[in-house]
Amino acid sequence: MSSAPFLPTPDALRALARTPHTDCQCSLQRCAGWESITETEWPDAHLQIAATLRDPELYEPTFEEHHPNGTRYDSPEAPVAVKHFPYNRCDVFACTRCQQHVLRYTEFGGYYVDHRARRLDPDTVCDTTD
């Protein structure tokens, strides 16, 4: 479990995402939608954990996705729904160079581990009702 502060609402995540940032040339610029990113591509020296979307009260968060407009999970236009997969299994990182925020989660398959990243755009954070 992450020691970062838990952001329980879309408004809290949107406020964090609206933190001013500048242009950066790091490897995460290509991550408009969920992209696989290897450990060697992850700019660890320039990123620090800012928050988590993992609810500490939930043992097993849902794998249900939220795509009301027919997007796919890896689409840059896909909504960021904090209580839905994969966002409910993410940590939020901030670049120390440009202050851009990026979401990161790790997908585990039968024979693989796949780290994924998505730059955080406040305009894609959505409210959902459960």
Rank of each mutant, 00 (worst) to 15 (best):
M1D: 09
S2G: 09
S3C: 10
A4R: 02
F6E: 03
L7I: 08
P8C: 02
P10V: 02
D11Q: 14
D11K: 08
L13V: 01
T19H: 14
P20Q: 11
D23S: 11
D23E: 11
C24Q: 07
C24I: 05
Q25F: 13
Q25D: 15
Q25A: 15
Q25K: 12
C26S: 12
C26W: 14
S27D: 00
S27K: 01
L28C: 09
Q29N: 06
Q29V: 07
Q29P: 00
R30W: 06
C31M: 05
A32S: 15
E35A: 10
I37Q: 01
E41C: 02
W42Y: 12
D44T: 11
A45D: 06
A45N: 01
A45H: 00
H46Y: 02
H46N: 02
L47P: 00
L47W: 00
L47Y: 00
I49V: 07
I49N: 00
A50Q: 04
L53V: 03
D55K: 03
E57Q: 15
E60V: 15
P61H: 07
T62N: 12
T62A: 14
T62M: 13
T62K: 12
E65G: 10
E65R: 04
P68W: 04
P68S: 06
P68C: 08
P68L: 04
G70F: 01
T71P: 05
R72P: 06
P76M: 11
P79I: 08
P79R: 08
K83R: 13
F85K: 00
F85H: 06
Y87W: 11
Y87G: 00
C90E: 08
C90T: 08
C90V: 04
C95A: 07
C95M: 05
R97D: 09
C98D: 10
Q100V: 05
H101L: 06
H101N: 06
V102A: 03
V102R: 01
Y105E: 03
Y105N: 07
Y105I: 03
E107P: 02
G110R: 06
Y112K: 11
Y112M: 11
V113D: 14
V113N: 13
D114H: 13
H115F: 03
R116Y: 01
A117P: 03
A117S: 10
A117L: 08
R118S: 14
R119L: 15
P122E: 09
P122R: 03
D123K: 13
D123L: 09
D123S: 13
C126G: 03
D127A: 12
T129M: 08
D130E: 06
D130Q: 04
D130F: 05
